[in-house]
């Protein structure tokens, strides 16, 4: 691994990007997973990160989402370096400015779908009644409002995954990081989820990073980034001709900015 000096001034690519990872290297033990990956996502852009299993896609997502620290390289959010932040600072970022969707949702099984969606709002200090209302609206937008009072294990995987998307969107994050968000969904439900991402990107200017190995899912992105053996193979710019971009998907509800956000409101 070739060590490089961490950047101290904002790189040009990071200045314009909502989220950027510059020259990321990362190892798990002796296994070198990433070897100088650079990714930048503009506000309102959907980027698909593609690659075979073990290529390092999820590691890139974890590094960009402040879940891991890179061994070498830097991560920038809206022109501000975030990989050197403290544990608390990175936690605050995840709570207030990122939204995560994982393949299996990672909802809390002991809570209802509605409570799961309310949770990030409650943790940011939003009033219970407001949180409940917003959660219902987002669940309604994703077509699972009627399941809001059911526990996670009482609903189907698709419904749970849509609730996970609602939870990621409900705080109106600047960036959504989705790791195989449609991996456990059928085609129609998967498209519903992807439509929600498109709405967030188009209506709220949210940057979306989709980690996937499905070309069908990647087709929804404006740009594809191919990853293999920890290196970027190349990027494919796609014209925004996908039906979801040219059509009129239902707009997302407008969430109130959470109280007590440590970063300035957008």
């Amino acid at each position: 691994m070739t060590a490089t000096t961490p950047a101290t001034t904002t790189p040009p690519a990071a200045q314009r990007a909502a989220l950027a990872g510059i020259d990321l290297w990362h190892s798990f033990g002796r296994t070198e997973v990433l070897k100088g990956v650079s990714v930048a996502i503009a506000p309102g852009e959907i980027v698909a990160l593609m690659g075979p299993s073990g290529s390092g896609k999820s590691t890139v997502l974890h590094l960009l989402g402040a879940l891991l620290r890179p061994d070498v390289g830097s991560v920038w959010l809206a022109g501000r370096r975030i990989d050197q932040l403290s544990q608390n600072g990175r936690s605050d970022l995840r709570l207030h400015r990122f939204g995560f969707v994982f393949q299996f949702g990672d909802l809390i099984p002991e809570l209802t779908l509605g409570e799961n969606v309310e949770l990030p709002l409650r943790l940011t200090g939003v009033k219970a009644s407001t949180a409940r209302r917003l959660a219902r609206e987002f669940l309604d937008r994703l077509g699972v409002a009627d399941q809001a009072d059911r526990l996670v294990q009482e609903v189907s995987g698709g419904e749970a995954q849509r609730a996970a998307v609602a939870r990621a969107l409900v705080t109106s994050p600047e960036v959504i990081l989705a790791d195989e968000p449609t991996g456990s969904l059928d085609t129609i439900t998967g498209e519903l989820v992807l439509e929600a991402f498109v709405s967030a990107a188009r209506d709220l200017g949210t940057a979306v990073l989709l980690v996937t190995h499905e070309a069908r899912v990647a087709a929804w992105a404006a740009r594809e980034v191919l990853l293999r053996d920890g290196r970027i193979l190349g990027g494919v710019e796609q014209p925004s001709t996908h039906p979801s971009w040219t059509g009129q998907p239902k707009p997302l509800p407008s969430p109130a900015p959470p109280a007590g956000a440590p970063w300035p409101a957008r």
């Binding site: 879940l67 544990q87 608390n88 936690s91 605050d92 970022l93 995840r94 709570l95 207030h96 990122f98 995560f100 990672d106 909802l107 809390i108 949770l119 990030p120 943790l123």
Partner: peptide, 8 residues
């Protein structure tokens, strides 16, 4: 799950 959501 709480840590993933961003709880300190």
């Amino acid at each position: 799950a709480l840590r993933l959501l961003g709880l300190r």
